[in-house]
Structures are given as C-alpha cells and as structure tokens.
Design a protein around this nucleic acid. Structure first.
Lengths: 151, 151
DNA sequence: CCCCGATCATTTGTATGCAAACGGAGTGTG
DNA sequence: CACACTCCGTTTGCATACAAATGATCGGGG
C-alpha cells in the first residue's frame, strides 16, 4: 500500500507537490550568502564583501582597467562602476585615464587602500573561518572543493 | 631554501599576501549564486528566484501574514514587501487584512498563482539539477548536506 | 484599565546585480 | 582608407537585500 494511487496521473500536480523549497540549491545558496554577509558586516563594518574583493584583487594583481577588474571579481560593468565610485570617494582607490587606450579607466590602490586591506586581511580570513565553522576541517575542504566546481 | 626568509616579521603583511580571494567561501558563494541566477533567468524568465520561493512557500503552507512569509522564505520585512507588491500587481497573490489582527496582511495564492507555480515546478527542479550538473550524484548529496549546515 | 514591550507593515537610504542601450575608441579586413 | 566588429565606460530601469526609523496594533503586568 503506497501513496502512488492517490497521485493524479498528470505531471504538473506531482511536480508542485514534490517541490521542496528547503531542498533547492538556489535557496540554500541564498541563505548561506546571507549568513556570510551578516558575519562580514559584523566583523568588517567599514567595507562590503564586494568592496573588499575589489581591494584584494588590486592588491594581488596591481592596477587594472575598471572593466577588467570587474571581470576579475565577478562583477558586471555597471556593478563595478558603483563599487569603484564609492571606493574612490573614500580615497581607497585612484582612477586615471589609460594613455595607451583612451577607452580605459585604470584603477589602482592608494596607500590608504593598501594599508586598509593589509590591516583587514587577517580579519577577512577569520570571517571565512567563522562562516565555515559549522563544518569540520575535512568537511570544509570538501565543501570548498565542490563549491569551486559550481562557481 | 624557502621563501620564508623573504617574509617580513610583522603579521599584517603576511595576512595580506596570504589572502587569496578565489579561496574565500564568501566569494565562491557569490559566484555560485550568480551562476544559479543565470540558469534560473534563462529557464523561468517570468519570475525571479525570490518570487518563485514566495509562491512555493504559499503553495506549501497556505495563506501567511506578509512578515511570516518573509521569515519562511528568508527575506526581511522590506524585501518581502516589494516581492509581494510585484506578485500582487500581476494577480499571482492576493493580500487581505487579517480580521483577527489588524496589524497583519494575509497573503494567499490566487488561482492564477497556483496554476503558474504548478506549471513551473518541474522546470524549477530542472534548474536545481542544472545548477548541480558539474557534480556527480554522490557529490550533489554531499554538497547539499554541507550547504544546509551553513544556511 | 493603563502602560510597556513586542510585533507588523511601511518608508527611506544605501549597496549590489543584471539587462539593455548608448557613444567613444581600438582593430582588423577588404 | 573605409567599414564592420568589438571593447570600454556610462546610464537607466528594475529587483533583491539590509539598516534604521516610524506609526499602528497587540499582548501581558501591575
């Protein structure tokens, strides 16, 4: 005796009943991102994760054109523009025209930006640790490995 | 002969050099969410993932107050308001005052909303599958299990 | 019964994030 | 050299997200 006999023959009804929001990867990703954001905002209130990502990439790669920096940090052209505008307004990055290509706007870290990043990098690593705290060390490695395949 | 001798003695410089953006869980979560969103938008262009989540929860739980629906879908009060406003403008949900508590706004699925959800549920499951496609079946189970612990 | 704290919905301000369209600038081809 | 194609930066419009403040309402305690 199963429940199969109670199911309607058509497909849509089955799918609607079988859809469990709490099991969907998109919903879980959104929730995990929200939790991470809360941890980040609590420990580094002066920057957002995206702003910090831009500083980190500039620190790692040196000056980059605005659009390229966007690609290197997974932000589209309009998003990176807003991020750079806000960082520039606070004096953390400088923007200069590229003499070799007049379309380009070269973004570079200022000394203040470099110092801020250097002072916060350890805290940023601690944020990643706290985000992964519910997992054991082995689970963290496994999770990051799988997550990388989806990114 | 290692590189250790070239490292400065202080801590901040070490942390700045040791910070690899591409290894940080927050960055990877953002990228995975972006990929999922692109898949969702391509396959269900008429709804956003959050809008679909609200319909799914209403389909599962029945009518709910607006704030409670927000909690049940991990959206704060101002976010869920905008989502419900847009769904209501399209006739997919109805909002009525709660006679038992005049603070509350009861949100319920309309027939159109119920039909739309039923018609899209199978596609939504396919979206989850496509998002997880880079993983094997065993990896998917493992990944979802770990992700749930972080959400 | 009145007050106090909690809850509900709303509004405002700020910050991603994506789509689409635009003009300016490089590049390669015929 | 002219043209098409591409890239760069910008702008607009829309949709999450969160913080903070507000006003209305509900609940319980004194």
């Amino acid at each position: 005796m199963t429940f199969a006999a109670r199911r309607p023959a058509a497909g849509t009804r089955d799918a609607a009943d079988g859809y469990r929001l709490d099991d969907q990867v998109g919903y879980l990703l959104r929730r995990a991102s929200q939790r991470h954001l809360a941890i980040f905002a609590a420990r580094i209130p002066e920057l957002t994760p995206t702003q910090f990502a831009a500083l980190a990439r500039l620190n790692q790669m040196g000056p980059l054109s605005q659009n390229l920096l966007g690609r290197e940090t997974s932000m589209d052209a309009s998003t990176i523009k807003g991020v750079i505008d806000r960082l520039a307004a606070r004096g953390l990055v400088a923007t200069d025209p590229d003499p070799e290509d007049r379309r380009r706007l070269v973004v570079s870290l200022t000394e203040a930006g470099r110092a801020l990043f250097a002072g916060l990098a350890a805290e940023a690593l601690a944020i990643s640790e706290e985000t992964l705290a519910p997992l054991t060390a082995a689970e963290r490695r496994q999770f990051l490995s799988l997550l990388r395949k989806l990114a």
